[in-house]
Design a protein around this nucleic acid. Structure first.
Length: 271
DNA sequence: ATGCGGACCTGTTAGC
DNA sequence: TGCTAACAGGTCCGCA
């Protein structure tokens, strides 16, 4: 479900509720998410004042005066702002209950999400330390993509989905960016010219930026902090469009599994 | 070092 | 209509 634009949409949605709020208590109903929620999270956050919410890749950093909790939405997770004490549903695994009378509620049917303690320096946490540059930052560019790809035979689509190469580019936007850059998803990463990587880096920035503007992509069930869908699905060129016409050349969009993930592309436009 | 496949878990949809 | 199989937006980890 959530890729970088959806996580960023969530971040913007929950930030006003979280920032400045004091945590009255933390309710954990299901501790066994991807990793068990450490009790340290409840210990540290209870009574703490929250400073804000940052994002690194698809991780949400819930910053408090006593340190930072690291949350991930996994495949099916979402945060919503609810009234404190509102009745939980079957997949509502934890709440941060604030003294404002509101609560941040985490819902995740598949339990691939996580909540960990990142301490004072969360960027040094094992899960975050090795991440590549943020795709919307200046350090991310064609030269970086080229340099990291030297000699590598991995399909460029799979390469783009490695967290150490680009932080937080997911399956939808990897396909979309390759389409915009006119690069075939199975092309070996090490056999792409710097010039084309420059175009690709710009395409990645563009597609992510456009998706954030649209509030993310809702295919089946993504909803923001107020329960509203994102509208970028209407602008997708290839993802989930198997058998439909390429918007540029009218050839049929194909679907192919690359690295165990569905990839969509136009055989005519992408080489 | 690289790259692949398995693992985690549940819900929805396509197909017979 | 009902059952079963395939598939889903993530990504870590262990193995070859």
């Amino acid at each position: 479900m959530p890729e970088l634009p959806e996580v960023e949409t969530t971040r913007r949605g929950i930030e006003p509720t979280v920032a400045g709020a004091r945590v009255e208590h933390v309710v954990v109903r299901e501790r066994r998410l991807r990793w068990a929620i450490p009790r340290e999270v409840e210990r540290k956050l209870t009574g703490a004042t929250m400073l804000g919410v940052r994002r690194r890749a698809k991780y949400l950093l819930l910053e408090s005066e006593r340190g930072t909790a690291i949350a991930h939405l996994g495949m099916s997770g979402s945060f919503t702002v609810v009234a404190a004490g509102s009745k939980p549903g079957a997949h509502d695994h934890y709440d941060l209950v604030f003294d404002s009378g509101k609560a941040l509620r985490f819902t995740d049917p598949r339990k691939f999400g996580s909540l960990l303690w990142g301490g004072r320096d969360p960027l040094r946490h094992k899960l975050l330390a090795e991440l590549g540059p943020e795709p919307l930052s200046a350090e991310f560019n064609g030269a970086w993509l080229k340099e990291r790809s030297l000699g590598r035979r991995i399909a460029v689509k799979s390469y783009l989905m490695m967290p150490a190469v680009v932080a937080g580019l997911g399956n939808i936007y990897a396909s979309e960016a390759l389409y915009r850059a006119r690069i075939h998803p199975r092309r070996a990463a090490g056999r792409i010219a710097l010039r084309r990587y420059e175009v690709l880096a710009e395409a990645i920035r563009g597609v992510l930026g456009d998706a954030i503007k649209a509030g993310g992509t809702t295919l089946r069930d993504f909803a923001d902090a107020r329960g509203r869908p994102g509208y970028f699905a209407q602008q997708l060129d290839v993802y989930d469009r198997e058998g439909l016409d390429c918007r540029s050349c009218n050839a049929e969009i194909r679907r192919r599994v690359i690295g165990q993930r569905s990839s969509y592309y136009c055989v005519n436009c992408q080489r």
